[in-house]
Deep mutational scan, measured.
Amino acid sequence: MDPFLVLLHSVSSSLSSSELTELKFLCLGRVGKRKLERVQSGLDLFSMLLEQNDLEPGHTELLRELLASLRRHDLLRRVDDFEAGA
């Protein structure tokens, strides 16, 4: 399986429902409101961002910004580990 997708799945499974709600709010300018209403998990949101090329294995800035906004430094370390091994 693609290591970047494994990372996104790992991050998604670590998010609380309130954190997902916050991420959806933060992505309002990037993803349409109707699409965001269908998001049920972090993976749903990340999939939309992947489709729009806002997220890519070599383009993790948005993911970092979102996780920093949540103050999830543990998840930021996972992104660091991914990039160190990528």
Rank of each mutant, 00 (worst) to 15 (best):
F82A: 04
E19Y: 02
V11H: 00
L15I: 10
L75H: 00
R30Q: 06
G29F: 05
D80S: 08
L45C: 03
R77T: 09
E22V: 08
S12N: 04
L55K: 06
L50M: 13
S13T: 08
V11I: 14
E56V: 12
P3W: 04
L55M: 14
S18E: 14
P3A: 11
S10Q: 12
T60M: 09
L50G: 11
D54K: 09
S47M: 15
H59F: 09
T60N: 06
E37M: 10
R34P: 12
D44E: 12
M48P: 02
L20E: 03
D54V: 12
G58F: 07
E65H: 12
D54N: 08
S47G: 13
S12E: 03
H73L: 08
L36G: 03
A86Q: 14
Q40R: 14
P57Y: 13
L26F: 07
L76H: 03
D74W: 00
S10G: 12
L76Q: 05
G58L: 07
S41Q: 07
R64V: 06
Q40A: 14
P57S: 11
L26P: 00
K35F: 01
L76M: 11
E56R: 14
L62G: 05
S18Q: 14
R64P: 01
Q52F: 06
S17I: 13
V79E: 00
L15E: 03
F25I: 12
F25K: 15
L15S: 02
F82S: 02
G58E: 11
D81C: 08
K35P: 07
E65F: 11
L63H: 03
M1Q: 07
E22I: 07
T21N: 11
R34M: 13
S12C: 05
S17L: 10
E19A: 00
S69N: 15
T60G: 03
S10W: 07
S10V: 08
F25L: 15
L26W: 06
S69Q: 13
S10M: 08
E83F: 05
A86F: 08
P3F: 05
E19C: 03
S12G: 08
L55P: 05
H59Q: 11
E51Q: 09
P3D: 14
S17H: 10
Q52V: 09
H73F: 12
R64N: 01
G29R: 09
S41F: 05
S12I: 03
E22A: 09
S41I: 06
D74C: 00
L20W: 02
